[in-house]
Design a protein around this nucleic acid. Structure first.
Lengths: 244, 244
DNA sequence: TCACATTTGTCCGTATGTATC
DNA sequence: AGATACATACGGACAAATGTG
């Protein structure tokens, strides 16, 4: 068998300085040397330590920032801070991909159905009532909004996030979170959602939770499907391909 | 109902210069003014046009690069080129999230099972034999490797990618692609995969395709589950939590 | 093959904005 | 309220890479 030179012989020096810097810092975060909450040295200091210019450091910090590893603050005791915002970054990127590829509403709903149905199945099989606390809390927040006569769009999105969390499968949480970013984006672009429709969705979520707790699996699945269809209908007029 | 001033009144100037620049270019790409393949002006020119310094332009370009919108090349006729590498970027970020959260092998397999099972269901329901061309081609490539007595890890990963494509649901393609990035990453870190095991997996993939074509839905689902379990077993010794 | 032009990559000096003490 | 420490931003300079004649 021939060795695969493409993987065995890596280029000795293909990386740019700022990539070298960002990779090095990233590695330190992965191996636990640097932990969330800790401060990185100021730009000047980083530049001195790595023996590179400040511009390279800044570009490296931009990469780390966009990858969700750090945030930066100006002022005394500011500087780069290690912080895990990777979820929100991934959601952003998902949104970009979504817009770039002009995904249809039906495809969106079909994908959600597949992913969230598998979340539901895991929740039905493994979740204790304690695991469902977050789901319950989310519904309570939604009801609070409704009694203020405000629509509970963001809270309703959160219901699905909390369901993913209840599955205790972090990879599914990441995936669901990414898909939901597309939904949250609508709220910012179309602020007005009728309160009555919101109310219907919250009721559905309550029924789903109830069915899950009482282990009525088929009913839970049926209700979730209905819920997703409802969202599909609510969004139908506002989907980008028709508005743009 | 009171208007929601938090969404209606946006801050006039919260963004940094380089964010302003990257957002503006991003918008031009989304609305189709700038298309993949086109060249952006050189950094100096961009700086002149937006009336900002070159440093800000460079940081904006880093963002666009990391978000998968452009690549850059030095030299004559080089410069920033609009190119859609968003998939590969998302896969990278997924990998980061994966490492950051130290996801377990069982969670990984469970998530894959949920997502890929819904892909399979859509394929079973909607795919024509023409849609399955890519899957067939992928298996052929795998067999070619095997007859060279080489393992077909990357080709076996590609099988799942091609199945997602056969679903014709781009959001699922994105999602599957992201999850598979985790697998591909193993190939680069553990080059040696026994050929015999590879052979078993390829055979499973052939059987799955056969079951799909002949609409033996239950068998296809059973085989896919078996396939995923097989991968789980093959990876068990090499999973990061034990090696790191 | 060798120069040349173009463009990114990199460093430095300096000035300004901003948050904390 | 003022000093301090930090990010943000500009401009100039040169090195390195890369396509062209």
């Amino acid at each position: 068998m021939k060795p695969d030179f493409n993987t065995v012989f890596e280029p000795v020096k293909n990386k740019r300085m700022f990539e070298e810097v960002s990779d090095k810092i990233k590695r330190l975060i992965f191996d636990g040397t640097l932990k969330p909450g800790q401060h990185l040295p100021p730009e000047n200091e980083i530049a001195r330590l790595f023996n590179v210019g400040r511009q390279s450091v800044r570009e490296a910090l931009r990469i780390l920032e966009l990858s969700g590893f750090i945030t930066t603050r100006a002022g005394v005791n500011g500087g780069p801070i290690i912080e895990n915002t990777i979820m929100s970054r991934m959601a952003d990127l998902y949104l970009d991909a979504f817009r770039f590829h002009r995904i249809s509403l039906d495809d969106f709903t079909a994908a959600r159905k597949g992913i969230e149905m598998s979340v539901l199945n895991i929740v039905l099989a493994t979740a204790s009532s304690a695991d469902l606390e977050g789901v319950r809390a989310s519904i309570n927040r939604a009801n609070a909004r409704l009694s203020d006569n405000q629509s509970a769009f963001e809270e309703n999105v959160d219901f699905h996030r909390q369901m993913a969390k209840a599955s205790k499968n972090h990879l599914l949480v990441i995936t669901v979170e990414s898909v939901l970013a597309v939904l949250s984006d609508f709220r910012t672009r179309f602020p007005a959602i009728p309160v009555e429709r919101s109310r219907v969705v919250v009721k559905l979520h309550e029924d789903i939770l109830d069915a899950v707790i009482n282990q009525r699996a088929d009913e839970a699945r049926r209700l979730l499907e209905h819920d997703l269809m409802q969202v599909n209908i609510n969004l139908a007029g506002e989907w980008p391909e028709e508005t743009v």
